[in-house]
Simulated scan of single mutants.
Amino acid sequence: MKSSTVGRFRSLVVITALMAAMPASARAEDIVVSNYGVSANGMPFAVALKKGFFKDEGADVTGILSSAGGGTTLRNMLAGSAPYAEVNPNAVIAAIQQGADIKIVSDNVLTVAEFVWAVKPDSPIQSPKDLKGRKFGYTNPRSTSLALATLVVQSGGLKTEDVEMVKTGGFGEGIPALDLGMIDVAPIPEPLWSKYQSKYRAIARAADLLPPIANVVGVAAGGQSAAKEDFVRAVIRARRKAVDFMRQNPDEAGDIVAEAYNLEQDVARNSVRYLVNATTDGIQYWGTGQIHLEGLNRAIEVQKMVGAISGDIDAKSIVDTRFLPDDIKAMK
């Protein structure tokens, strides 16, 4: 073996040994976030990545993987051994009921304030009381949008059978369906609402109409190494810093979101401003990670209502608070 080859070989051995000795919290890891780059829930992760908060806290997050739904997010997390994922509670509960070894480790989005239900400007519908006999859009069966649509209808003193529920397949698809008259009311969540609000008229806003409902949560798989557990703790701390930054610097945060989500700057800024100021019964939209049991229990009941989950569920039994900073470990 030539001396240069021997030198390269020795260097490779040394590098490999150093990598093996590195704590996992310093190694590169991906995290998985439902609808990242599309829905408002994941915006703090874009800020944490751009501002370097992950690295500051000791988590070398190399990528944020997106997926189109809760079940897909969990499959991606478990299949790819990602230490942490953000997902809707019903997907977590369904997975646990099927035997998945996962726990809720942070309560990330505490309300559904991103939801607005809108009509065309010339529509005679002024409020949920006027929905009888109307076509009400929702995305897919057993979805959060269907559950919330049911609550909106009930808020107007009506029953679900008093309206015609129409599946559109997605929020983006609901907008042309509204334009074409296929539906009379469409759910338009942020940041879509900030983009299209000049074109439509809101008849209901979740922030004003609905109580705090757990929206998305952070989850981690059981049986992880101590280093990966430290990584999860660091991700939670970094996201918390991002939420604080967004509240103090909404326009700069909006610019970061615009780049990560491929949005117009004014749309992203408007969306961030709206959501950092949106409170429901004093509860803010983006949480610090602290578990709000009342909102989690409410999410369970809402999802039961549309058949997304079934059976008796003890919310406390699916939560693990040991990853949270000491000052927010106590459940609310």
Rank of each mutant, 00 (worst) to 15 (best):
I104T: 03
P121T: 04
Q126M: 12
P121V: 04
V112M: 13
V105P: 02
A82R: 09
P83T: 09
A113E: 06
M77F: 03
T73D: 06
S81C: 02
V109E: 00
Q98G: 12
I93M: 10
P83V: 07
G63E: 11
G70E: 00
I96D: 01
K103S: 05
A118E: 02
P83C: 05
P128T: 10
S81Y: 04
A118T: 06
S81I: 11
K120C: 11
Q97Y: 01
A82T: 10
V119L: 10
T72R: 15
E114M: 14
G70R: 04
N76T: 15
K120M: 09
D107S: 14
A79Y: 14
G80R: 03
A91T: 12
G63C: 09
T72C: 00
A79C: 01
P128E: 00
I125P: 03
G63K: 14
V116L: 15
V87C: 05
V116W: 15
S106Y: 12
D122V: 12
A95E: 04
I93D: 05
S123N: 03
I102D: 01
P121Q: 07
P89C: 05
K129I: 08
V105W: 00
I96V: 09
I96N: 06
K103R: 11
I125G: 08
I64T: 10
E86S: 09
S66I: 09
A91H: 06
G69H: 02
I104D: 07
I102N: 03
G63L: 11
A100V: 11
I64E: 00
A100I: 08
A68E: 03
V92F: 04
S127Q: 09
G63P: 11
Y84E: 10
A91F: 12
L74A: 01
Y84W: 12
L74Y: 08
